[in-house]
Nucleic acid binder design. Structure first.
Lengths: 241, 241
DNA sequence: CACCCAATGAAACTAAGTTTCATGCGGGAC
DNA sequence: GTCCCGCATGAAACTTAGTTTCATTGGGTG
């Protein structure tokens, strides 16, 4: 028979869908794919791994993206990299949704998925940590923002998997923008002020006022480049629609 | 013999410390504690569970604290509740550090710990979600801030476990204050602007300028109370010490 | 053809976790 | 005291994931 990885995965998903995950033994998958038990374990290492067959390559791609990123801030690179993950799942289509059904039903698989997510989070944390100044605050920020990025990703992904999401591109951009906006003030050196203006006062007025009164203070849409001397700025649009 | 839970846990930790986790079979633990294999599984369900014997009660205590919290915001309640977890581990002392040594060395245990953390995170997310308005943005914020709180907790806990932390009380307060500060502006309704002023321009000058030019715009030190009408504000001091 | 090496299969083995049943023990009820 | 009941324990068989070891095969190369 000599089935490739794809055929084995297909056979496994077919069996899981019909008999259920727990009721399907590895022997069943093996015979279903026309291979031996030995070959299965050689190819996947565990029964759970067949559900997440390309996790390692995906992790590698994300890691590579982080390494070669030309983003103007560490957080931007992370935010950029996490989209690879989301779009990978979106591209999988029904297979991803079938996996979601399984992970929702089988605690062991849900935990496995959690562990996968933590791997990304660790990658992100390390990246952010590397670009920080090594201070306690910097490390804390790295950890918290890595968690935030992953959480935002998870939310959009889950919505898409549940079919609650029409345009995952737009949603992930928006969700990550919120995260990025929430944490950008951490990437700049100078004092920052978050001000809330009353209704009727447009953001444009605030910008103009600031520009007029405080020379050199900038209010811009683009995120500040890394480690600037405190002369860059960023506007934050609040949560509400 | 008829050993209680405590004795069994003690025996298990003793064996894990000497022989290592993988090299210790459940039979060894059972005989070490003077009980039978059956009784062990009846008491703990799995070999891994003996490492985290009071996870369920701790989760229950945290859940209870959330339910009965009188904090003035959902996030405050969560921030409050997560301290229970930290201080529980701190109170455990050497036992917690021994566990840390094990989870650091044994991947399976690290994953288990991860899953435990995710349980808290889910609890927090649900609590925050409950207090939100149900909008997509609100749900996203709930998920992201729950992740942020857990991440901050994890960092302080890990530092304490490694002995890098002299005063866990102070560190957790500080770390959670950062998180709370980072996310409070999400609790206000009006448009917000995050501005970064150049060096040499004091925050006081910015405040004065804003107050002068934009009538009604406030820049204050105290975080705004929940669901204000957009006339409150919050200053964010940036990362650097 | 002879050789080699890499992939496969077969089978034994370990250990976790489940299930089933037997046993014993304490505490009433009479 | 004795009978009985419930409950915790123990014993042992069983299932299955995952490992290890060894034999086989088959395809490419000199």
């Amino acid at each position: 028979m000599a089935a490739g990885r794809e055929e084995i995965v297909d056979a496994a998903f077919r069996l899981f869908a019909t008999r259920g995950y727990d009721a399907t033994a590895v022997d069943d998958i093996a015979t279903g794919a026309g291979i031996s038990r030995s070959t299965f374990f050689r190819s996947f290492g565990s029964k759970e791994a067949v559900i997440f067959p390309d996790h390692d390559t995906l992790l590698g791609r994300v890691s590579e993206r982080l390494r070669t990123s030309h983003a103007n801030s560490a957080l931007s690179a992370v935010v950029d990299a996490v989209k690879i993950v989301l779009f990978h799942y979106v591209a999988e289509g029904d297979r991803a949704r079938e996996r979601y059904r399984l992970t929702s039903a089988v605690p062991a698989l849900r935990e496995r998925e959690l562990v996968s997510g933590a791997r990304y989070q660790q990658l992100f944390r390390r990246h952010l940590s590397q670009w920080g100044d090594g201070s306690d605050d910097s490390e804390l920020r790295a950890e918290v923002s890595a968690a935030a990025v992953v959480a935002a990703h998870n939310r959009v992904l889950r919505r898409w998997l549940r079919g609650e999401c029409t345009d995952p591109h737009e949603e992930i951009e928006r969700a990550l923008a919120v995260v990025q906006h929430t944490f950008v003030h951490e990437a700049v050196d100078g004092p920052a002020a978050l001000v809330v203006v009353p209704e009727g006062v447009s953001m444009r007025m605030v910008e103009a006022a600031l520009r007029q009164v405080v020379e050199g203070a900038l209010v811009a849409d683009s995120p500040p480049s890394r480690r600037r001397r405190g002369s860059s700025g960023d506007r934050v649009t609040p949560s509400s629609q």
